[in-house]
Design a protein around this nucleic acid. Structure first.
Lengths: 82, 82
DNA sequence: AGAAAACAAAGCATATCTGCCTACATTTTT
DNA sequence: AAAAATGTAGGCAGATATGCTTTGTTTTCT
């Protein structure tokens, strides 16, 4: 796996994250603080420009009071198998 | 987030992966090939010694014919919120 | 027990991520 | 319209992941 061509997936994931964050009325800064992640990193993830780790993503979804299972239930065609 | 203290989570994730792989009668090598990931990396993930990326994990769960949503539905107390 | 297959472990080089910082752009509020 | 808040973008250094290889261990099969 020399290159990651996960751009579509990562962008969908970023949108999902952004939606959930806004739904909770949080700024990127507030979420960053709650999840113990850098503000710039939240921005990168939401824009889908980075392939973050599951550990860090867990921190973030925890801060959003949601499980990974629920988090990934956003688009079957993208998030997993048909 | 200087350090990752996700050891418990990563080990649970590794066990989950190993279980699913064996359930399908695949060796690490076969899964590595199907998912386009290094054999040694499959080993590291299953042992929980590495905090892999969601993109790579997606490749792997795809190779197991499962969605991320289903994959993470293994332990609510670990994978996410209560 | 012996052979073969499967897995673990470790080292190395390169790629990628992540935190931190600064500057700019966009949106929201007054 | 101006100010304030929010988000984007970029560079940089250090940390971490990943592919690749070799060696040793454990498991499985005969």
């Amino acid at each position: 796996m020399k290159q990651t061509h996960h751009t579509v997936f990562l962008q969908a994931l970023g949108s999902r994250l952004r939606d959930l964050r806004r739904l909770r009325g949080l700024s990127q800064e507030e979420l960053a603080w709650k999840a113990d992640v850098e503000l710039s990193q939240i921005s990168r993830i939401e824009r889908g420009v980075i392939n973050t780790s599951i550990g860090q993503l867990l921190n973030i979804v925890d801060a959003l009071d949601i499980s990974l299972t629920e988090f990934f239930a956003f688009d079957q065609s993208v998030a997993g198998k048909p």
